[in-house]
Amino acid sequence: MDDHDEQLLRGRVYGAEHDDPGPRAGRTYRELCGGPLDGLLLDVTGWDAEQLADGAALSTHLSRYGDTGRSHYEPRPGDPQRWEHVGDTP
């Protein structure tokens, strides 16, 4: 296990229950960087290569558009384990 793996094991998972926010063994995660979800982990277990390449539009009331907003994250060039915030949509 490297330093990045150890950091992921300490993080909170997007969409997880507040009383059990941590990552689980045997799951695959991406770290969200920048934007309103900065520092959270996204569980991508079972996603295929195309889905991973596309990134995700994640619901969050913290987006620029409030309760109806989504924050968009895409794989960071050269470091696909980290996904960068690329904007928000209503």
Rank of each mutant, 00 (worst) to 15 (best):
H72Y: 08
E74K: 14
L9V: 06
G87N: 06
A49P: 06
V44S: 08
D67L: 14
A16Q: 09
D19W: 14
G46A: 04
H85K: 05
G46F: 05
L37Y: 07
L8G: 02
D54Q: 15
P77M: 05
Y73T: 02
G55C: 05
A53R: 14
T28D: 09
T45N: 07
G69I: 10
V13R: 12
G39C: 02
E74S: 05
G55H: 04
V13Y: 11
W47N: 09
Y29A: 01
S71W: 00
V86S: 05
S63C: 13
R30Q: 09
W47S: 03
R70I: 06
V13E: 05
E50L: 06
G87D: 04
R30V: 15
Y65K: 01
D48T: 11
D5G: 07
R70M: 02
D43K: 13
Q7W: 05
R12G: 04
D38S: 15
Q51W: 02
P36M: 03
L41Q: 11
H4A: 11
R82W: 03
S59I: 02
V13K: 09
P77D: 09
G87Y: 09
G78D: 01
R24Y: 03
E74Y: 04
A57F: 02
G46T: 00
A25L: 15
S71E: 01
A16L: 10
P36C: 08
S63Q: 11
T89R: 14
E17L: 15
V13C: 06
R10Y: 08
D88T: 10
Y29S: 04
R82H: 13
D48K: 09
L41C: 10
H4Y: 13
D2T: 15
D38H: 15
P90N: 12
L8V: 13
W47T: 07
Q51T: 10
G11I: 05
H72F: 11
P21A: 00
T68E: 10
P21N: 01
G87A: 08
A49S: 14
W83K: 12
G39Q: 01
H85W: 15
L40P: 01
R82K: 15
D3E: 15
L8P: 00
R24N: 03
R70P: 00
A56L: 10
R24D: 08
D3N: 13
Y65N: 09
A49F: 04
T45V: 11
A53E: 12
H61I: 02
Q51N: 03
T28C: 01
R70K: 12
E50M: 04
Q51E: 12
V13L: 06
A49T: 14
L8I: 13
G11W: 00
H18D: 15
L40I: 01
W47L: 12
Y14N: 06
H72G: 00
G26D: 08
R12T: 06
S63N: 12
P36F: 02
V86A: 02
R76H: 07
E50Y: 02
G87Q: 08
D54Y: 09
D88K: 09
L52Y: 05
G15K: 04
H72L: 15
R64D: 07
L42V: 08
A57K: 02
S59L: 10
P75N: 04
G26F: 08
V44K: 12
G15N: 01
